[in-house]
Nucleic acid binder design. Structure first.
Lengths: 140, 140
DNA sequence: ATACAATAGTTTGATATCAAACAATTACTC
DNA sequence: GAGTAATTGTTTGATATCAAACTATTGTAT
């Protein structure tokens, strides 16, 4: 497990990005949320109302994780849940007004993250990076 | 937080690599260990006896995390701890014979990880990847 | 219609991890 | 030498996360 290992780097970047996001969320008055919460909010901002399983797919997290994440967002008043009209197994998740009001903040944070991560990285290299990382992701 | 986001990919790869490592450790009869344990073992294989703070630096984890990780390795018999001869604050960590016997397994796992992650990725692209990821890492 | 399989989401248990606070030891300043 | 700052590692608290097991509901086969 050599420190120069790409996988090691990926782990460190992951941690740092998450810490950055957590700090930024706090700066925007959205304290107590983790990056994953932010991801859910982002999905809801984009897609409106979704099922829990869809959240699982969109942010690629375990079902039970989604339950916990959503419950916290509900508790904080950002998200609401209702039963599907046709299938009683299905819960549908959507933003509350309070949640929707976070849009500017979420967008700002997203922009800052990109700015921070990609400083001094050319557009072309971003594309290369994305391509290579996608390959690695698919290798697992 | 767009799913196409590089940072998102990094997070997923991190998780998958860790899961892969965990599974491989188990396959090699080294169950109950996490990738970070493996990293510590790797460091000790390479460097012999080190201080706790050195472990913190080598694998870039929080001091308290190192304490927990090392304690588990001690409990499992892979690692031993002794006080420094000159400074009573310092603990020195080294492999036990049992720990040292894991070397072939650790090496094998490391090789498998690389093989898995870098399948279909040229040597040149690995260098590019490392360079770009290092930049991103330094940006945070 | 009944029985079983599949699905949706929850509950439960475990854990690596960070950060803050802390105690003991050593280093440094006067 | 005394007092304070710095260092080392531990303790404590919190948490996102996964995975297994589970319950309720719906789908499918007979």
């Amino acid at each position: 497990m050599n420190k120069d290992h790409i996988i090691f780097l990926i782990g460190r970047i992951n941690y740092k990005a998450n810490r950055f996001l957590r700090d930024e969320l706090e700066k925007h008055g959205i304290a107590g949320l983790a990056p994953s919460h932010g991801e859910i909010l982002g999905v809801l901002l984009m897609r409106g109302e979704v099922q829990m399983t869809q959240l699982t797919e969109y942010i690629d997290k375990d079902k039970s994780t989604i339950t916990a994440l959503v419950n916290k967002l509900i508790w904080l008043g950002y998200v609401k849940k209702r039963k599907d009209d046709d299938d009683n197994r299905i819960s549908r998740i959507a933003l509350t007004e309070k949640g929707a009001s976070l849009k500017p903040g979420i967008m700002d944070i997203s922009r800052k993250l990109r700015k921070k991560a990609y400083e001094n990285i050319r557009e072309r290299d971003k594309k290369i990076l994305y391509t290579l990382l996608s390959k690695i992701n698919m290798n697992f």
